[in-house]
Amino acid sequence: MEHNSNKINRRDSLKWMGVASLAGITWACDTQETTETAQEEHQHATDDSLKLSEADQKLMNQQFFTDEEMKTIRVLSDIIIPADDRSGSATDAGVPEFIEFMMKDQPRHQTGMRGGLHWLNVQCNKQFGKPFPDCSEEEQTNMLDQIAYPEMARPEMSVGVNFFNNFRDFVATGFFTSKMGIEDLGYQGNRATVWQGSPQEVLDKLNVSYDMVKEYKFVN
């Protein structure tokens, strides 16, 4: 079955590619293509590239986080979802750019996110004498262990816990809605098919069977 809903016009695509390479985003194409020809080939090869409306393009062109803040976001994102043998890391999947976009798309998140990053640096300064990105891996882990486990955290860390819960959620959505994340998860759908029921091994494992509904006539 042919479906045309995912087509995007060439100009939009090139506009996006330009922004993407500036921002170091890798979610629209696997490798950083630099020539227009290569981009066009890529465009022809895929039908699921990013589509930006004019309004979204405007948001993309604005910058909310400072370079320093983005640095912290990158480090944090990859600590939360690192690369492993199945897939890449959060930054490989474009999570920091997704978070940046959402701040502009839903400005209600701005204060909490910026405040949380600030709080994290203040805490690290207090405990280790330097902001979070400059801390050693050991110091970063030490800091995060104080806020990453809500039930274990000390009461005075509650704002940090809330920030980290929120940040973790952003990273998870950003990663698992990326192409890499969806492949990692093993989601098999979003395609034309014929539903014929759940596989036998799935039914067996759950101790159910289609005999339970044998009085009804199903399609397929």
């Binding site: 809903s5 997704f98 976009f101």
Partner: peptide
């Protein structure tokens, strides 16, 4: 017929958010 059927979340910068 011109709706967003089969669109992947990563085809939007907001990944389908309800903004």
């Amino acid at each position: 017929a011109e709706g967003d059927m089969f669109k992947w979340p990563y085809q939007s910068p907001r990944r389908g958010a309800s903004t």
